[in-house]
Design a binder for these strands. Structure first.
Length: 803
DNA sequence: AGCACGCCGACT
DNA sequence: GTCGGCGTGCTC
């Protein structure tokens, strides 16, 4: 086995295969599949992942592996298979799939530098560049404006050479420890020999004679009130030695979490957990869907199932939506399992993510709680995978590889023969349909653990408010309830459902709307900078004082941003202390947590925010929840809009009255009769499911069909249309089944982004076993144009949102 | 992707 | 001549 099959870090479809390399003698014993290596590739060097080893190769001009980056494989055998599966399922490149499975810092950094090889005089410019140095970073060439030709000559003459460097981004944090380097009795001898003037040194030695264990330098210095020089003196005398130890950054202080023990389960909880426990005992794979109302104790089921898994010596992955990875959630897991829990989410720094990943990799933890990508945690003995709030769309990755964490979890569950548990108060229609068909095992938790009724929901018809002359964003009912709530010393949460509802600028005279010059979308008004910004390409301009079209000064802001609501609210109820939570106020690290803490400490009466406040928050003093615009996303061109509205309303209602105080919910809408709003107010998931399934059947949408979405983009409008047309034609000639439909070419909902036109076509199918292969074959025909003409083609095998 | 190579037009 | 721009093909 002297040959390695390597996937190289070159994201191009023509490179999407393994390349063979000879394994030099010195790496024979250490190199294993799953390790990262540096290999020569053409004139440069690149990073690669070893997929396997072989004793022969078809290729006869093999090069050698230049270096091995890992001591232990970063990809287990299972993850290598999973990566291949992922790439094929999502029509992505292998390298893209593998990179997605590992923390950022394991990606390579590439650098070029020039080395001076001889003393021979170089052209003047080069001579000044080197200025006595032997190595020069390549970027300096460009900034010095030196032409490539002069260098080329020097290279040909053998005076200069180019090095291609591959650097790992890994940064480990080290802590210095001190320990005795000799036997205790030798230390004692040395202690006698030490001059009496060396008081501090004697003290230190005495300490190590008493306690020879290694100790952190910092602690030592602090304890003895001395400095590094004392230690150095002893090190020089070879009595003590310095040990550098790798230290993990621990973003959470484990000791700070109050330990909890298993709660007694209700009858419903018992019934739900028993089949899961059985799977755990029997090493059996099933997918369970726990449909449990808010407050029915799903988390306790997760915790106790994990307990079983740990007791069996196995590991657990818990996925939670990005947004609800609140301290509250972390506390529940750390509280139960203490330091055996790793946490992975986007708010961690790259270094912190890497450290958490390593704790998993080195088997220091048994549980990982994390967002989507935690589904790739490098456990080798998985006993359960849990996906909380399984309907959340943050489980779908929206760039390559476009995977759904649920699919990956089930794939891993199959290989590990372990259960996958999906939990939600409002399961995705696909999931519930599968449970109905018996593909998943369904468990329903209809009762809340505290036996409290769900808060009452009042629907306010905003049209009659308008007729009654109330033109504000707040219905009279909501205003009254807010005032009462504050007067009682309780708190309220106000949700502005902002999707598709941003603040834009319009001229009242001629109706002109300021749009982005690069994208087909209205610019969004940002008050604090007095700017108009494009949310797709980050173009920005100052707010005009006069209409660019008709020069009128009657320019007004439309739509409803949280900022405007906040202003209106403080006018309406001046005594209210309002806390605003949206992308603007939570951008800074830790801001999210800080705001929530302020609210928990009752420093504000009203928490006003977007989607992000709907999930997972649990404040005991909140008794009123108001939804300002329940239907704002109902009319978006997305087949899931009713489902999303239902989910959001159900979820946000669950925020009220979770504890002793009774809660109340007010939902403002212009379409009170819509079934998603009406049924959400009655907490009737089953009825909603049936209604919505009828709609999906009628319009042929998932779960009745599968979707594949192909999007084409290019600067030239005609090119896009023609290419999409060709793809549609190609697809028609490949599809096999009767019922398969291909829609398009259609302009994408936002037809132009960053000066590129976007068209799409969609395949709706029930059974098309060769579709993936066909799509692959069709788009490969455009490889040349993709490379040379900046054409882009993306495929999404299960688009989650069409906008 | 990134790089070299080679062909072609333009310019000191 | 020779500099530099761009199209083409290759990478174990």
């Amino acid at each position: 086995m002297t040959i390695a099959n390597v996937i190289v870090d070159v994201p191009a479809s023509s490179i999407n295969q393994t390349f063979d390399y000879r394994i030099p003698e010195r790496f024979q014993d250490v190199l294993e599949p799953g390790m990262r290596v540096i290999v020569p590739f053409g004139p440069r060097r690149v990073m690669g992942y070893v997929m396997g080893k072989a004793s022969t190769s078809d290729y006869d001009k093999l090069k050698e592996i230049a270096d091995v980056l890992d001591l232990v494989p970063v990809l287990t055998d299972e993850l290598i298979d999973l990566g291949k599966w992922l790439a094929e399922k999502t029509l992505s490149l292998y390298i893209i799939a593998f990179q997605a499975m590992l923390p950022q810092v394991l990606k390579a950094n590439y650098k070029k530098e020039l080395e001076r090889l001889s003393e021979a005089p170089l052209p003047d410019q080069l001579e000044t560049l080197f200025a006595g140095r032997d190595f020069v970073p390549y970027e300096e060439l460009e900034s010095a404006g030196i032409h490539y030709h002069q260098v080329q000559k020097a290279i040909q003459d053998g005076d200069v050479s180019v090095h291609y460097l591959v650097k790992s981004k890994v940064t480990k944090r080290h802590v210095t420890y001190i320990k005795p380097s000799r036997d205790i009795h030798l230390l004692e001898e040395a202690y006698q020999d030490l001059s009496n003037r060396a008081k501090k040194q004697k003290e230190l030695l005495a300490h190590f004679i008493e306690q020879p264990e290694e100790i952190a330098l910092n602690t030592l210095l602090k304890h003895f009130g001395t400095t590094r020089s004392t230690v150095n003196a002893l090190v020089e005398k070879q009595l003590l030695e310095i040990v550098k130890k790798e230290q993990y950054r621990n973003p959470y202080n484990d000791a700070a979490f109050e330990q909890t023990t298993a709660l007694e389960l209700t009858e419903q909880q018992e019934q739900s957990i028993e089949p899961i426990r059985q799977d755990i005992r029997m090493d059996h794979h099933d997918v369970f869907l726990i449909h449990g109302v808010t407050g029915s104790g799903k988390t306790e089921i997760y915790l106790q199932a994990i307990q079983d898994v740990i007791a069996k010596g196995q590991e657990a992955i818990v996925l939670v939506p990005e947004i609800s990875l609140t301290p509250q959630m972390v506390r529940r897991f750390k509280g139960r399992f203490g330091s055996s829990v790793a946490v992975m989410h986007s708010a961690l720094s790259n270094g912190e993510k890497y450290d958490e990943w390593r704790r998993i990799h080195q088997k220091e933890v048994q549980v990982v709680v994390g967002a989507r990508s935690a589904v790739f945690a490098p456990f080798e003995n998985l006993g359960i995978i849990i996906i909380d709030e399984e309907h959340e769309n943050s489980y779908k990755q929206e760039d390559q590889p476009r995977y759904h964490a649920r699919d990956v979890a089930i794939q891993r569950g199959k290989t590990h023969h372990c259960p996958v548990v999906l939990g939600s108060a409002t399961p995705a229609l696909e999931s519930y349909a599968r449970a109905q068909k018996g593909v998943y095992q369904l468990a329903s938790l209809t009762k809340r653990t505290n036996d409290k009724a769900m808060p009452h929901v009042d629907i306010v018809d905003m049209r009659s408010e308008l007729h009654a002359g109330n033109r504000s964003m707040f219905s009279r009912d909501l205003k009254n309830k807010l005032e009462q709530c504050i007067n009682r010393g309780e708190q309220a949460v106000l949700l502005l459902n902002r999707r598709g509802y941003s603040t834009f600028v319009m001229c009242r005279e001629c109706g002109h709307v300021n749009e982005c010059p690069h994208c087909d979308i209205a610019l969004t008004f940002h008050k604090n900078s007095n700017q108009l910004k494009c949310h797709y390409c980050s173009y920005e301009e100052l707010v005009p004082t006069r209409c660019p079209s008709c020069n009128s000064d009657l320019i007004r802001f439309f739509g409803t941003g949280t900022q405007r609501i906040e202003e209106a609210l403080t006018q309406l109820i001046p005594q209210a202390r309002v806390l605003r939570m949206d992308v603007d106020t939570t951008r800074r690290k830790g801001a999210h947590e800080k705001l929530l803490n302020q609210f928990a400490n009752k420093e504000a009466d009203i928490l006003l925010g977007t989607q992000m406040i709907a999930k997972g928050l649990d404040f005991e003093n909140v008794t009123l929840v108001g939804v300002l615009t329940a239907d704002s996303m109902l009319h978006l061109p997305d087949f899931r809009s009713a489902e999303k509205t239902f989910q959001l309303l159900t979820q946000v209602s669950g925020r009220a009255g979770r504890h002793d105080l009774p809660g109340e919910v007010i939902v403002q809408t212009y379409t009170p009769e819509h079934y998603s709003i009406e049924l959400a107010s009655q907490y009737d998931y089953l009825q909603f499911y049936q209604n919505e399934m009828q709609m999906r059947k009628k319009f042929q949408y998932p779960p009745y069909v599968f979707l594949a979405l192909i999007t084409v983009s290019h600067q030239n409008h005609a090119t896009v249309v023609q290419t999409t047309q060709k793809i549609v034609k190609g697809l028609w000639s490949h599809v096999q089944e009767e019922g398969t439909v291909i829609l398009g070419p259609t302009p994408s909902p936002i037809t132009r982004v960053k000066d590129r036109y976007r068209y799409q076509c969609m395949v709706k199918y029930k059974q098309e076993p060769n579709l993936r292969a066909s799509i692959h074959q069709i788009i490969r025909q455009f490889d040349d144009q993709v490379r040379k003409d900046d054409l882009q083609i993306t495929v999404d095998m299960q688009p989650y949102q069409l906008i």
